[in-house]
């Protein structure tokens, strides 16, 4: 069986396909996936998959915040269990909680607009959207961790170029 000849080390493509540190790839991919949905997949070379997850989860999360208002939606004190789900979309939830903290002093000072007091239907829908976005990102994080152990698509193409016999 003919084997694919190894590429020379000076080939830029070979450098790009060099295997990453196996011990760090999983944790880095998982952390990136937690911080920004889909970034773990992009880091692993699954660009389309990562971008789809990034757009879908981010839009879902911020749609929920827009529907319910940040005060009623991202609230670790009043909705602690939902916040545990929301925090799975790390960066989004931290940004929303930062906005929550910015708006809170206005509430204390009585400057909060009446419309910010969410109708219970709105706040429930908003919490569901953000919570589901968080749980979806948990799936994405687990998938990124699983794919970190598998060969990346780049390496697969390098190992099996089109037309070359497979070992």
């Amino acid at each position: 069986m003919a084997l694919v000849p190894p590429e020379p080390a000076t080939n830029p493509a070979a450098v790009a396909y060099a295997p990453r540190n196996a011990l760090l790839t999983g944790p880095i991919a998982g952390f990136l996936a937690w911080l920004v949905p889909g970034l773990g997949h992009i880091y692993l070379g699954h660009r389309v998959r990562g971008v789809v997850c990034l757009v879908t989860i981010t839009v879902t999360f911020w749609t929920g915040v827009a529907i319910g208002g940040v005060q009623a939606t991202v609230d670790p004190h009043e909705r602690s269990f939902w916040f545990m789900a929301q925090i799975c979309t790390g960066g989004n939830t931290l940004a929303a909680y930062g906005l929550h903290r910015v708006v809170e002093p206005q509430l204390a000072a009585g400057q909060r607009p009446v419309a910010a007091l969410a109708h219970w239907l709105s706040s429930e829908v908003g919490v569901h959207y953000t919570g589901v976005a968080g749980l979806l990102n948990l799936l994405v994080i687990l998938d990124a961790l699983g794919r970190a152990d598998a060969p990346s698509p780049k390496r697969t193409r390098r190992d099996h170029p089109p037309g070359a016999p497979r070992p």
């Binding site: 827009a66 319910g68 208002g69 906005l99 419309a115 910010a116 709105s122």
Partner: peptide, 14 residues
């Protein structure tokens, strides 16, 4: 304001 102001929903919209 888009993210700090809640939207009022009806049951059908929900």
């Amino acid at each position: 304001a888009l993210f700090t102001t809640a939207i009022e929903l009806t049951s059908a919209q929900r």
